[in-house]
């Protein structure tokens, strides 16, 4: 590409004046109003906001699970089409969506099976993924006999196994207890620092956003608009636990908290 300088950053997700209305009981509710932002290649972006601000709605529109009411979404320059997921985009749910009738290894290997990857290669990639997630010895377990944290590790690997370049995550650790959550942050950071996927991570937990992300996009209370865009400049690789004890973390926390707090207050009075 002679026209672009080699160090130019590539835009992977482009969201332009995105809007979403729902009609509930005959009343129109504006969930997302005029949201615009761009995410560059290899960036880890947290979408932060109070509950009900439409952050998951934005994510699900990018994932093509929900049709927008207006505006545009482009993934790698191509417009997102409702119901047509893009191959190299992975999605991690908040809810446990593991297939309960499949064992851990068959859940992890699902995408490879669907894509027709030969059994030999599939086995070795599944074994590697299970090892990376610290799930050795659980390959033949069914999801019902795993803890919440382990299930979410399996979910993560089920998505990562097909090596998606873009990762959409909808409060994936929202249902976990604090300790398990920190544990999952370490797992995710170590996996991500190796692959450097482009990530859009929805959360309402400021600590989580600070720990993981390069940028925090703060949404206003409903209707969701981009309120502020913070750059989080902690060096990488990060230690999910030690990070929380640094002065810079405390500074950034109170800086973003102030803005976030205003939105929480608005959300309650609305």
């Amino acid at each position: 590409m002679p026209s672009t300088p080699p160090e130019a950053v590539r835009c992977r997700i482009e969201i332009d004046r995105l809007r979403k209305n729902f009609s509930a009981d005959g009343r129109e509710v504006v969930a997302v109003d005029d949201a615009s932002f761009r995410i560059n290649d290899g960036e880890f972006v947290a979408l932060l906001g109070p509950s009900g601000c439409g952050k998951s709605t934005i994510l699900n529109m990018v994932a093509t699970l929900i049709a927008p009411s207006g505006g545009a979404i482009k993934v790698d320059g191509a417009p997102a089409v409702f119901g047509k997921p893009v191959r190299h985009v992975g999605y991690v749910f908040q809810k446990d969506t593991l297939f309960p009738w499949r064992t851990v290894e068959d859940n992890v290997g699902y995408a490879l099976e669907i894509a027709g990857v030969p059994a030999g290669e599939r086995r070795s990639r599944v074994a590697e993924a299970i090892r990376q997630a610290g799930l050795d010895g659980f390959a033949h377990f069914y999801p019902a006999s795993l803890s919440g944290g382990m299930r979410q590790r399996v979910s993560l690997m089920r998505t990562l196994i097909s090596r998606p370049e873009i990762l959409l995550m909808d409060e994936p650790f929202g249902a976990l207890d604090t300790h398990t959550k920190l544990d999952m942050h370490s797992v995710l950071l170590s996996l991500w620092e190796r692959q450097r996927q482009t990530v859009l991570f929805v959360t309402h937990d400021l600590g989580e956003a600070l720990t993981l992300a390069d940028r925090i996009i703060l949404l206003s209370a409903r209707p969701g608009r981009v309120k502020q865009d913070f750059r989080i400049d902690f060096p990488r690789p990060r230690d999910a636990v030690a990070l929380r004890e640094t002065r810079r973390y405390a500074e950034l926390f109170s800086h973003v908290w102030h803005s976030l707090g205003e939105e929480f207050a608005k959300g309650h009075s609305a």
Partner: peptide, 29 residues
Amino acid sequence: DRDHINAARLLGASEWQVTRTVIVPSTMA
């Protein structure tokens, strides 16, 4: 479960693959 169908789609499954790998096994139960 709608979410199981969505998960399969997002993992690259075609309509027929969704039927075979999600709808049939969960109906089997």
